[in-house]
Amino acid sequence: MGFKLLSKLLVYLTASIMAIASPLAFSVDSSGEYPTVSEIPVGEVRLYQIADGVWSHIATQSFDGAVYPSNGLIVRDGDELLLIDTAWGAKNTAALLAEIEKQIGLPVTRAVSTHFHDDRVGGVDVLRAAGVATYASPSTRRLAEVEGNEIPTHSLEGLSSSGDAVRFGPVELFYPGAAHSTDNLIVYVPSASVLYGGCAIYELSRTSAGNVADADLAEWPTSIERIQQHYPEAQFVIPGHGLPGGLDLLKHTTNVVKAHTNRSVVE
């Protein structure tokens, strides 16, 4: 069995187990497998329904001669939608809004960016022009300005110390501490036991640490421990890039980060 097929099978099995364990909360999309990078042309966006009122959005972007996937989250909030992270750029984010209108038909009224990198804030200006209120932590807003990236308009308070959590509509926002970046936030959907790890969490097929220019490698494993301790009931975990899975993604990420750190020390 090929690795790609095995990865998709694991996603399907995880979703099936969740649907059985929580039949009222989960209505997993039966329309197909989780979209992969090879299936999404740059400039297009796919939506994948995880649970009743919960979707991931998947886009792709060219970077350094390669094409990478990027995940975000959409959560229903009454007759409105909360968006977590842009679709990595203005063109993708405009396509995301169009796809949401086509498939869901509810307005996106608020959006949260989970850290300051372009795959999370690139497209904020498109959201703002569409009347979406954009939010991020003060740290993310400051770092985005320093980096020359787009800056969300509103500040999220109460997320300055490791372990801080605040309720934001249908989700809980959690600051686990520094990891992929010093400002990275985690998003949890309690009604569906869905954990969105953003770039602080890796997919299972990833074996290298990737972009760690703004990471705190020493603190990252401790931050992941905080996530595990705060959300032990999480059933569906979405990484910032690639295929979702279960809580095993947290341990896998820790292993990859520690291996990278150990290699760096040896070198």
Rank of each mutant, 00 (worst) to 15 (best):
G240Y: 04
S38L: 10
L156R: 03
A51C: 05
I58V: 15
L159P: 06
E157T: 11
V75P: 02
I84N: 01
S56D: 10
R226A: 08
V257G: 01
A59E: 07
L217G: 04
A15S: 13
A200K: 03
P41Q: 11
L173D: 01
G242A: 04
I74L: 09
R263H: 11
T109N: 11
E39I: 11
V75H: 00
Q61F: 06
D248F: 07
G198Y: 03
A129D: 13
A59D: 05
E33S: 10
F63D: 09
I227G: 04
L173A: 03
S191R: 11
F236C: 09
V121S: 01
V212D: 07
G32Y: 13
T114V: 00
T261C: 06
F168W: 09
Y135S: 01
S160W: 11
I74E: 02
A130M: 13
V11S: 13
F236D: 05
I151Y: 04
D85M: 00
F168N: 00
P23W: 12
V132T: 06
V11N: 13
S160G: 13
F3W: 07
I186A: 08
A200S: 06
T153W: 09
V166A: 08
A209Y: 06
G105Q: 11
A215L: 05
N184F: 00
D64I: 08
H115N: 05
A98E: 12
H57Y: 07
S70T: 06
D29A: 12
D183A: 01
P244R: 03
L13G: 07
Y175I: 00
T222E: 12
V126C: 03
P23D: 11
P107N: 10
S193F: 14
Y175Q: 01
T14A: 08
V166Y: 08
I100R: 00
L195I: 08
P244L: 06
E157K: 11
L159G: 01
L243D: 15
G123K: 04
L83R: 01
F174W: 01
S223K: 01
R120A: 06
L156P: 06
Y68T: 09
H154K: 08
E233K: 14
Q228I: 11
D77G: 08
V42N: 11
A90Y: 07
R167N: 12
E44T: 14
Y34C: 07
E150S: 04
A192K: 09
H252P: 01
V42Q: 10
Q61N: 10
R76I: 07
H154V: 08
P35R: 07
H154I: 10
A200E: 03
F174N: 01
C199E: 02
I104Y: 00
I104W: 00
P221L: 12
A66M: 12
A19V: 15
A129N: 15
N71I: 04
L249E: 02
V67E: 15
Y188W: 14
D214R: 07
G163Y: 05
L106M: 14
T140L: 04
Q228T: 15
G43R: 06
A259G: 14
R110E: 05
H115F: 00
E80G: 09
G131M: 06
